[in-house]
């Protein structure tokens, strides 16, 4: 067979592809019938058209039909995973921030110490006549101050004691033995109980504030004390969660009595 003109190849291609007009198609088909070579080329080109093989079928259609369900689970899983990752990220962020803040505070604490504002407990004098009875006995803490017999450096102090964190808020202080002696001999002209109340806070001693209360017992004359028989000092101390008072009691006498006591 002779090769045909390239233009005929294009025309035959267009004929089989359906690119020719109706008239062009008729004319070319007539020519094909007349020309043996052209007809052979036409038949050969016609044979190049592929025929679909209907026996080839996709074997796993069920897998494809389940894609939506599988993807829904996947999307759900992805959502939960995203939320979990976000929570983890936030938690990590907060932890990091807190740790940085702690380090910063630790560093700053070495530079300046700001003393906390100290709130002093309120103390209040109770009438001396309110003696203990069996009914209200539980409300009192009785304390006998220890006489300071050999304290030459501070002879004004007759007796001293410290109460730490008293359980009761009413403190009853019994006069010390030297005070009795002074009263009984009539030699002591004046005696003062000084009660210092400190808030129990971990602050430097120099910063420690105190609230004091003075009892000038003999100011009104010896008779008054004598009539009371056993004079008691009673104070009421306000306590709160943060303030646990520490109470320091001093019994002061004038120097002349101290001198007497030493003798």
């Amino acid at each position: 067979m002779k090769d045909i003109d390239e233009n005929y190849s294009i025309l035959l291609f267009d004929l089989l592809e359906g690119n020719l007009s109706e008239q062009g198609k008729i004319n070319l088909l007539q020519q094909i019938q007349k020309d043996k070579n052209l007809k052979h080329e036409y038949e050969l080109l016609k044979a190049t058209f592929l025929i679909k093989d209907e026996n080839i079928l996709f074997p796993h259609k069920n897998v494809l039909l389940n894609i939506p369900k599988r993807n829904n689970y996947l999307i759900l899983f992805k959502k939960y995973a995203t939320v979990a990752a976000a929570c983890l990220f936030i938690f990590t962020g907060i932890s990091y921030y807190m740790s940085r803040k702690a380090i910063s505070l630790k560093n700053n604490s070495n530079i300046s110490i700001k003393s906390p504002e100290i709130k002093l407990p309120k103390i209040e004098k109770l009438p001396l006549t309110a003696k203990r009875t069996s009914a209200n006995n539980a409300d009192f803490i009785q304390y006998n101050p220890t006489p300071v017999n050999n304290d030459k450096s501070n002879t004004e102090i007759l007796a001293v004691t410290t109460l730490n964190k008293p359980d009761s808020n009413i403190i009853s202080i019994m006069p010390a033995a030297p005070v009795y002696k002074a009263i009984n001999t009539g030699l002591m002209e004046e005696i003062t109980y000084i009660i210092n109340v400190y808030p129990e806070l971990k602050t430097p001693v120099s910063n420690r504030k105190k609230r004091s209360i003075h009892y000038p017992l003999l100011r009104f004359g010896r008779t008054m004390i004598a009539n009371l028989q056993l004079p008691e000092i009673k104070i009421k101390i306000q306590k709160s969660k943060n303030i646990i008072p520490k109470i320091n009691i001093q019994i002061h006498t004038p120097l002349n009595y101290a001198a007497y006591h030493e003798n």
Partner: peptide
């Protein structure tokens, strides 16, 4: 779509 096109796509 699965029913209609999977075979053609596979082919």
């Amino acid at each position: 779509c699965v029913t209609a096109f999977s075979d053609g796509l596979y082919r």
